[in-house]
């Protein structure tokens, strides 16, 4: 079943929540309120929402340090995410994980990861658990095209196929590996061919089209659940902001970014909604709702206490 047009306004709101979350973090970061690094996912909202909405709540997911949107789309509470960014006791990891380690097993989120490609075997292991437990959970792992030159990427694809594991590999190809143009350091930058070479179905999807992403992941999940093994999905998208805050972006022309803004996912879904008969006022309402969700999360996070120093010494062992 494709993503029902009735759910597109919700998807639009969800994508706006992600966008506004990142904008709020940027402002906090510039104001010196965020510790550490922040890797924004602005421009990549459709692949996050389309992919995660095609899963069940108890399906597993791992994501990357550019994964705020992926985590929120899977169901992580916006309040808990914002509080984590501000290092508060009410954060999803009580302030111990931060921007690159959003986690919430109650929605299947087995962690974002700060090591490129490290989440692939973790999700695939969760898929193995599902297979051994004779459950029908699938696991999805997000990674960037910058991950496809890591050894563990190849190792994991091989094992997933050999053991026919219910896992979905979603490569968000945003064209840049940190501050380097990906095709300059990758022998064949059509990464889906790497998935294909292991003998799994591999598709290229317009990652800025939430409906296309949903359809691709839904088909992959259905195949995985019925014992058909893994699928590789290469989602073509574009990173509208830099690798991280403070990235001077000397590796690309401003015109390139300006062109990408014309086809970015939220603009596109807005047009699609209008084609379906929604008015500008309907879109404004969704926008206001998203803003209210972020304002609420900000207020919650700002009013939350910092963790007590003694908390630094808990949660090392079970």
């Amino acid at each position: 079943m494709p993503l029902s047009p009735n759910r597109l306004p919700d998807a639009y709101r969800q994508m706006l929540v992600i966008r506004k979350f990142e904008e709020a973090i940027r402002d906090l970061y510039m104001g010196g309120k965020i510790r550490g690094s922040f890797h924004p996912c602005v421009g990549q909202e459709a692949s996050a929402v389309g992919a995660c909405w095609a899963l069940q709540k108890d399906d597993y997911m791992t994501c990357t340090y550019r994964g705020h949107g992926q985590a929120l789309a899977k169901g992580l509470s916006v309040r808990a995410a914002m509080a984590e960014m501000l290092g508060k006791a009410t954060g999803c990891s009580k302030g111990k994980g931060g921007s690159m380690h959003f986690t919430d097993p109650s929605v299947g989120l087995l962690g974002a990861n700060a090591i490129v490609a490290a989440g692939l075997p973790l999700a695939t292991g969760a898929a193995l658990a599902s297979q051994l437990q004779k459950q029908d959970h699938v696991a999805l792992t997000f990674f960037g095209e910058g991950a496809v030159n890591q050894g563990v990427f190849f190792e994991t694809l091989n094992l997933a196929v050999v053991w026919k594991l219910p896992v979905i590999f979603v490569c968000e190809n945003n064209h840049y590996s940190e501050m380097t143009v990906s095709h300059e350091t990758t022998s064949n930058s059509e990464t889906y061919k790497r998935g294909e070479s292991f003998g799994m179905p591999a598709v290229v999807v317009d990652g800025n089209d939430v409906e296309a992403m949903y359809a691709a992941v839904e088909a992959a999940a259905e195949r995985a659940r019925s014992g058909g093994g893994p699928t590789y999905i290469e989602a073509m998208t574009y990173r509208l902001w830099g690798h991280m805050m403070g990235d001077p972006e000397g590796y690309r022309a401003k015109e390139e970014v300006a062109r990408a803004r014309e086809v970015e996912p939220i603009v596109r879904l807005g047009k699609r909604l209008k084609e379906l008969g929604y008015s500008q006022s309907d879109l404004d309402t969704l926008n206001a709702e998203a803003e209210a969700i972020i304002a609420d999360a900000l207020q919650f996070a700002q009013n939350s206490p910092a963790p007590k120093p003694a908390e630094a010494f808990t949660d090392v062992f079970a």
């Binding site: 075997p121 292991g125 190792e155």
Partner: peptide, 12 residues
């Protein structure tokens, strides 16, 4: 990969 799969399966 197989140590990683072990971790993922343990978390699940």
């Amino acid at each position: 990969a197989f140590v990683g799969l072990g971790i993922g399966s343990a978390m699940a």
